[in-house]
């Protein structure tokens, strides 16, 4: 190997190492803070390695165990149903509009594309969902609005387009129905892209709290992210507005930093476990979209 190449390699590795440290550090601080007691926080401040292992924050959260478990349940339900249904519908849609011999191809492509440029806006969307669809306080409201995204459809369409039409024709000659072609040939061949889109969708569903905030009046159907957001929002709110309303907010019984961070750890935990399973598809999937687009 030439010296220049080695230098280049070293540079790349150092750079990547630095980037990964930047990514990991905040997370280390979150974990360490969640393990520090309030008094410890006051004395030592934030640190990467905890000075002590103190499980008070988690113990406090266990008091609200029912709420957290139900929030977890809700998140898992939403993410799995939504991802499954969404990926199925989007793949079918994308495959259909990728076929040159499909009559409504242009119209349907435009139909999807249109939503990328124009959106209904929050108020109109809210009125549509509350007045016409009557989905307020209904758990399906968390699933339906995010299920189909035009962006993902186009990624999938590019991938489907790459399929040689001959493969489909030969399947037809062998007597396959359209549905069978889709499930036996298209889906297996698009495994990587579908896995990538699934991962993106799981993240979207998992991180979405805004929909819960908007369409639910009660907190008992909240997802884990919304639970976290609520706690954080309320703490910030109290801190920022303590003066505005006559100093009547009792700042002393707010959850400490440790508790906030512990909720954060609980919220991202499952995603950390999901990611490695998808990772190999993820890289390949992004490539497909990038190169052939």
């Amino acid at each position: 190997m030439r010296k220049k190449d080695i230098n280049k390699k070293i540079f790349v590795y150092v750079l990547l190492l630095a980037v990964s440290i930047i990514c990991i550090l905040p997370f280390m601080i979150i974990i360490s803070t969640s393990l520090t007691s309030e008094k410890g926080m006051a004395l030592n401040g934030y640190s990467i390695i905890p000075h002590e292992i103190n499980l008070d924050s988690y113990r406090y959260l266990l008091k609200n165990l029912n709420q957290i478990l139900s929030a977890y349940g809700m998140s898992i339900w939403v993410a799995s149903i939504g991802t499954f249904a969404g990926v199925t519908i989007m793949t079918m849609f994308a495959y259909a509009i990728s076929r040159e011999d499909f009559k409504f191809r242009k119209f349907l492509s435009f139909f999807a594309y249109f939503t990328m440029i124009f959106s209904g806006g929050t108020v109109a969307t809210y009125m549509w969902i509350s007045r016409s669809l009557h989905l307020l306080n209904n758990r399906w409201v968390l699933v339906l609005p995010l299920m189909v995204s035009a962006y993902n459809i186009f990624i999938l369409r590019v991938a489907c387009k790459a399929l040689p039409i001959e493969v489909i024709e030969s399947a037809k000659i062998d007597g396959c129905s359209e549905l069978k072609i889709f499930f036996r040939i298209v889906v297996p061949l698009q495994k990587t892209v579908i896995a990538t889109i699934s991962l993106l969708m799981i993240f979207t569903y998992w991180n979405d709290w805004y929909t819960s905030m908007l369409y639910f009046d009660t907190a008992d159907k909240s997802t884990i992210q919304y639970y976290l957001v609520r706690v954080l929002n309320s703490v910030n709110f109290a801190k920022n507005n303590a003066g505005a309303a006559g100093g009547a907010i009792n700042t002393y019984d707010l959850p400490s930093d440790g508790i906030q961070m512990a909720i954060c750890v609980l919220a991202v935990g499952p995603m950390m476990c999901v990611f490695p399973f998808f990772q190999k598809y993820f890289v390949a999937g992004i490539n497909v979209g990038a190169v052939k687009g």
Binding site: T122, V123, Y126, M127, S130, M213, L214, A219, V229, R230, L232, N233, S234, V235, N236, F237, A238, N241, A244, A245
Partner: peptide, 28 residues
Amino acid sequence: ESGDYESKMQILTASNEPFDIMFTSNWL
């Protein structure tokens, strides 16, 4: 919850949702 109150009330009033009593002030 207090942190969501502002955005929630704004969407409710903007979309003419029927309801009755709300908190209002010069800061929230």
